[in-house]
Design a protein around this nucleic acid. Structure first.
Lengths: 160, 160
DNA sequence: TACATTTGCGTAACCAGTTACATATTTTAC
DNA sequence: GTAAAATATGTAACTGGTTACGCAAATGTA
């Protein structure tokens, strides 16, 4: 090989994870574009959520995905612009925007699902000789939920 | 729990990897800031490279890290602004900028290394009950190097 | 030797996330 | 019933990556 980030072992791990994440993201976007699909990465998450729940607010979605709410606002605004999302203000709480899938979204869903399925198939293929990856990723997520990287590292510093 | 991205299994994996990558990145930045360190994530990679190689060009660094060259330009410009990088133009090829660590960088290195070591310790702790994670990450990287996500997914689409 | 190609690097525009701040509305507490 | 606190959402500014484009210098080739 000759991949410096791998060479330096633990010192390169964060950057490798970012590199992987970016590669998947850009490649997914490229995939949708090359197939002429009017969707973007992450929209599948919103489709899935709204399909399941019917109607949700920005805050509910951001909690479910564990994204910041401005991130969700951005995603939803784009989806609205493409006509996939209907909104109405909650009658009992006028601050809340009730979001749901538009008719156009429902119509296109079967086609989108075909493409998303192909992506899932790819993900499974990528993992088929790494049977513990997902589980061990979950270990890491849980540890970081209990105590984040900064706190842990401060602790490691003072315990030198 | 109640983490939707985990619930939906393979459909949420890319976003989980991004979420993890972001969490590490932001937490690292926060860590440096809270300790009053004048450094940013990724700079350790440049320090390591230049320490090992003495002098490198933008292009060489971008190849080593497998980052795009504009990404490296941005990192180096920031490091220059803080006085950590000396540059001189190559006498044989005036397009090339020869980059090296400044005296200030060399002076501060021992302190920085102490902090980076604490980070590596954290990373090891995060992985200590996930002994296969790094190796299986490498499997994935290698697969994607051979054929990227888009190509794989196009193939999975037509082979339905 | 001159012209076409390649290379190095800088800049602009984009992208998907973040934090910080603002505002309007609702809820709580006295 | 009103003031204070909390909540929902929007917006601005930042970050760290990308691709696309441009230009100057070097290299290859007829």
């Amino acid at each position: 090989m000759d991949d410096f980030l791998i060479e330096i072992e633990y010192a390169g791990l964060h950057s490798r994870i970012k590199r992987l994440s970016d590669a998947l993201l850009y490649s997914t976007r490229d995939f949708y574009k090359s197939e002429g699909l009017d969707i973007e990465p992450n929209w599948n998450l919103v489709f899935l959520l709204l399909q399941k729940q019917g109607t949700m607010t920005i805050t509910e979605i951001s909690e479910k995905l564990q994204f910041s709410h401005p991130a969700v606002v951005k995603i939803i605004n784009k989806m609205k612009k493409k006509g996939y999302i209907d909104t109405q203000t909650d009658e009992e709480d006028s601050r809340k925007q009730l979001l749901s899938l538009s008719q156009k979204a429902l119509d296109k869903l079967p086609v989108f699902e075909m493409y998303w399925e192909a992506g899932i198939k790819t993900t499974k293929d990528l993992l088929d000789d790494s049977p513990d990856f997902v589980e061990q990723l979950k270990n890491i997520e849980e540890k970081l939920n209990r105590e984040n990287y900064k706190e842990r590292t401060l602790r490691n510093l003072t315990n030198k």
